[in-house]
Design a binder for these strands. Structure first.
Lengths: 232, 232
DNA sequence: TGTACATCAGTGAACGCGCGTTCACTGATGTAC
DNA sequence: TGTACATCAGTGAACGCGCGTTCACTGATGTAC
């Protein structure tokens, strides 16, 4: 019960949030590499050593930001993927992911951009990171179970090693779809984020920029490729 | 003629190269954000202010590294894309790009990773950056001119805005292929680099990792998608 | 309900370190006559 | 070919700034009896 929490607890929770909020603000200006405890503390009117009551080190603060970012994206994707059929949920989900990324380009870069030199992401980040791919795989599974999964073209056969990897992955995430279908989902996943990264990181400037129509086009085409049928 | 170059000229060219080499070494350890003129100078046994004879500022050194990286990748891709038909050149080109990236992950991250906060890439980088996409588009044009371009599936129709963007791009790069074909090339380009980024940045750990077979599979499938025919 | 003690948040000084850029300068290399 | 002058490379000091982390401490909040 929240009434049972002491004033100290509430103050701690609130300050923890304020520290992360200020850190996110600085992330947008300086990037994760130059994110500085001292300047976060300064901005909050505290002395820098006080932050060590909340995060044992700078890297732990970065980890918290990473986990928050993955979860924020996971929430946005799960809430955004709406519609009656898997194809519609795929299309709305892709759009929601892109929207999230465009609103928070620096949080996006934090999780999908260059690795931070000298920083090693702890195990604690992986569950949050898995949410989006699991969502996409779930859509494929739905269509498979409904018997409507119909890829636009067969594509090359899986080599034996790839098939083994993908079947291991299917078991690991407790999903029952043919390895070809799961492979397509992974391909689409890399395609989706490849497109978003190119848009946000400036590679598309001067070609398909603004990118809205290109993104919509490619999302549909990925749906065809995966085999999510248009509503009949 | 190289004989006409003075000793001063040769010394300057050599030191410029040594500065960039040392900077690349530090790029691998610290990343572009923490790359430091002082520490490059220190490692070279010079005083930090001496570097200003070679690069007017830290950002200019970074720009030089970016242009070198794009050109190094451009060379690797152009040299690697060999074979009698466009499909083979596509497959070998993709493999060469990936190899380059795996050998120089930090140079890859410099050009295809997160933007560097506070750094604005000057116009001088765009020609070098365009080499890889132009190479890929060139393959599509070859197949088109040979009359062998046969996409695996039609895909959604282009919306009018997208068609206009793509036709504008075709004109800009002086290429004569239908907008649908050029759009496919751009899609494959984002797919290709999305996959490489995911591999290098650690998103594929625990799924299709090692990524060799997945990459080979997807490259072929992209060739099908673009419409580069298997050798007949 | 009141008191004694334990827990915790925040302070301020310190350690040891780093950075980009400017400037007046020395001495070597290159060039024009 | 020799000399005077101009160009350039590299020095060393300085400016003004930043960082993460540790530690002994004060004073407020919470808890057990």
């Amino acid at each position: 019960m929240s009434a049972s929490r002491t004033a100290r607890d509430r103050a701690r929770a609130e300050l923890t949030r304020e520290i992360k909020d200020e850190a996110r603000r600085q992330l947008a200006e300086e990037g994760p590499v130059k994110l500085s405890l001292r300047s976060v503390a300064r901005e909050l009117g505290m002395v820098s050593s006080a932050l060590y009551r909340y995060f044992p080190s700078r890297d732990d603060l970065v980890t918290a930001l990473i986990i928050d970012a993955y979860n924020s994206l996971g929430d946005a994707a799960e809430k955004g993927a709406t519609g009656d059929d898997p194809r519609t949920r795929w299309l709305t989900g892709c759009a929601a992911i892109r929207e999230w990324a465009k609103e928070r380009p620096h949080e996006y870069a934090l999780i999908y951009g260059s690795p931070i030199p000298g920083y090693k992401a702890p195990q604690a980040t992986v569950a949050a990171a898995a949410r989006v791919p699991l969502l996409l795989i779930g859509l494929v599974q739905e269509a498979w179970e409904a018997g409507t999964l119909t890829p636009a073209f067969p594509g090359p056969p899986l080599t034996s090693g790839l098939q083994a990897q993908v079947m291991g992955l299917a078991e690991q995430v407790a999903v029952e779809v043919p390895p070809e279908a799961l492979t397509r989902a992974i391909v689409a996943w890399t395609q989706l984020f490849g497109m978003i990264s190119f848009e946000l990181f400036g590679q598309l400037v001067g070609s398909v920029d603004p990118t809205d129509e290109f993104f919509a086009h490619t999302s549909q085409q990925m749906a065809d490729f995966i085999g999510l049928p248009a509503r009949s």
